[in-house]
């Protein structure tokens, strides 16, 4: 484009702007066309239809006693389902929301207070926090403890200490019956 002036020299007035228009229009079509041609390549790396099809999980909760927790797989990630005791529910509700790093009330994070369902992936860098098994460390707040970089979660799965920025996310789920839940 630097030599634009040379090949428009000596042309009748009006011709130069017509050539400019043609050049810019051609360039614009070329750029847009290339971008559109790139998209299928980029999008082929996004989750495929079969990956998306496996995005719900049904769980039978009848065998999980109070105080116990189970881990199920949903979208290749662990989901923590904890049957909370009355004391744990009380602890989660008693927290002053204003003190939390990611303020959320406990009753906004559960559909039935005794069942806490959260994605068991630390919001820092994706490790799986400990606290599901009886002997695991649960941190200072009785929830989960991430062994990678020391994040600690409370009995509502909220971040209380350590480098993680957010609470353990609550997946979309519905109770199909009193003891069956569908995640996703």
């Amino acid at each position: 484009m630097a030599n634009m002036s040379t090949h428009t020299q000596g042309l009748p007035p009006g011709d130069a702007s017509r050539r400019d228009f043609l050049l810019y229009a051609t360039t614009a079509v070329g750029v847009a066309g290339t971008a559109m041609a790139l998209w299928p390549f980029i999008n082929s790396m996004n989750p495929s239809a079969d990956t998306l099809a496996m995005s719900t999980t049904e769980v039978d909760l009848s065998s999980v006693a109070e105080g116990q927790a189970i881990t199920v797989t949903w979208r290749g990630k662990p989901v923590f389902i904890r049957h909370r005791t009355a004391a744990e529910i009380e602890e989660a509700k008693a927290v002053n929301i204003g003190d939390l790093r990611d303020p959320e009330a406990d009753d906004k994070r559960v559909k039935k207070p005794q069942w806490l369902i959260v994605v068991g992936v630390c919001t820092h860098l994706g490790c799986i926090p400990l606290g599901q098994k009886a002997g695991d460390p649960r941190g200072e707040f009785g929830g989960w403890f991430c062994p990678c970089h020391g994040s600690q979660y409370d009995t509502s799965g909220r971040i209380r200490k350590g480098p993680a920025p957010l609470n353990l996310p609550v997946p979309a789920y519905t109770f199909l019956t009193d003891t069956t839940v569908r995640i996703g």
Binding site: P47, S55, G76
Partner: peptide, 27 residues
């Protein structure tokens, strides 16, 4: 998992980028 999750720190588009990198919802 840890290194690809570094990209989730990017504001707004972070999660979309990690999902794209993984081609799913986890490694």
């Amino acid at each position: 998992t840890v290194i690809t999750n570094l990209f989730s720190a990017i504001p707004v588009v972070g999660d979309a980028i990690t999902t794209w990198l993984w081609g799913g919802f986890s490694v």
